[in-house]
């Protein structure tokens, strides 16, 4: 369905090249959900943007790799054909709802435009009712009143849900959702989780779901990719990854969460150091300066993603002897 191979997305500057996404490969089957986690700045959004080629600036380009979507390589598709796909077959929920809703149009007007363009099957007379129904579906209460609001009159979570509703009305085959549930309370998160699962069952929608909330990912996703410094460092079935994270980075990341056992006000674990900026990655394994289990080889050579038991893939020298 979607097959991303060896994707490299770089920022080209006069004096340097910044690799925001480096050798990322994954595939997404019809009706499956891939979760993507990782610290801020490790390239999750850039990976997602690359798939639709909605890259932030002129100097940012896909340098290498292919993105095959239903047999067509999006990486080399002409812009106008890609634009058609973007609206109808691929939907995108952006990370910042505030910036992707038009501030001077009422919610109703924005939704009508999407429906007008992509849902010719809905008669003009039925559009109003359809919009209210779609908004109610994502848990917005009082939808009749809310459609008359401007984006700034909605709460953070309501804006986010309007975005989700807009992405779903087009009945896409691929839905890319970048942090779609951060501003939602857990009951509505649960509702969105159910809604997304329903979508994939009924319509076979495939979903790329980016989030910092590993609990949401754990519940929703079939497989999870952990990103670090522009690369996938671990990839596995959700259950497997949550129960037995192998990469020291994944392990460290999961330990940062205040769990049920967290003694109140005790210090929480943090990963020491910070994510290296794209463009100044260390030599060898990119995680080695922060890794508690670092040894000599890590400083010199970059490990490759190697397959372990149960199709778990890990990019780490610790496991280099045990691949199968």
């Amino acid at each position: 369905m979607l097959e991303v191979k060896n994707l490299k997305t770089y920022f080209f500057y006069d004096d340097k090249i910044i690799p925001a996404v480096d050798e990322v490969s994954f595939s997404l089957e019809e009706g499956s959900i891939l979760g993507m986690v990782g610290e801020s700045g490790c390239g999750k959004t850039m990976t997602a943007l690359s798939i639709t080629r909605l890259l932030p600036s002129r100097n940012c380009k896909i340098a290498e790799g292919s993105i095959v979507f239903n047999g067509i390589d999006l990486a080399s598709l002409p812009e106008d054909e890609l634009r058609k796909k973007r609206g109808s077959e691929i939907s995108y929920v952006f990370q910042e709802p505030a910036t992707s809703l038009n501030p001077v149009l009422r919610i109703e007007e924005q939704m009508k435009e999407v429906i007008f363009l992509h849902r010719k099957d809905i008669a003009a007379a039925k559009r109003d009712a359809f919009i209210v129904e779609q908004l109610t579906e994502v848990g917005i209460r009082n939808a009749q009143k809310k459609v008359k609001c401007f984006p700034h009159q909605l709460s953070g979570g309501e804006k986010q849900r309007v975005m989700i509703a807009m992405a779903m009305v087009t009945r896409p085959k691929l839905l890319i959702a970048d942090e779609p549930t951060t501003a939602l309370d857990v009951t509505i998160q649960a509702q969105i989780i159910v809604l997304l699962q329903e979508l994939r069952q009924k319509f076979g929608v495939s979903i790329l779901f980016i989030s910092h909330d590993i609990n949401v990912i754990g519940e929703l996703a079939d497989c999870v990719a952990v990103m670090y410094a522009g690369q996938i460092v671990e990839y596995a079935k959700a259950e497997r990854l949550m129960r037995q994270p192998q990469h020291p980075y994944t392990q460290g990341l999961f330990e940062c969460l205040p769990g049920a056992w967290a003694v109140k006000r005790s210090r929480l674990n943090v990963l020491c150091g910070e994510v290296p900026k794209a463009g100044c990655f260390p030599q060898g394994c990119r995680f080695h300066p922060r890794c508690p289990k670092v040894f000599d080889r890590c400083r010199k050579e970059m490990p490759a993603l190697a397959r372990q038991k149960e199709n778990q893939e890990v990019r780490c020298w610790l496991y280099s002897g045990s691949e199968i």
């Binding site: 109610t136 009951t187 649960a190 609990n215 754990g218 519940e219």
Partner: peptide, 29 residues
Amino acid sequence: SMPSLHKRLLRTRKKEAELPRKDERGTAA
């Protein structure tokens, strides 16, 4: 409703029971 891996494994997420899908009261709220 706190999300967790556990819930999926146990398939305990029941949609009708748990979630107020339709706002029957509408604007009367």
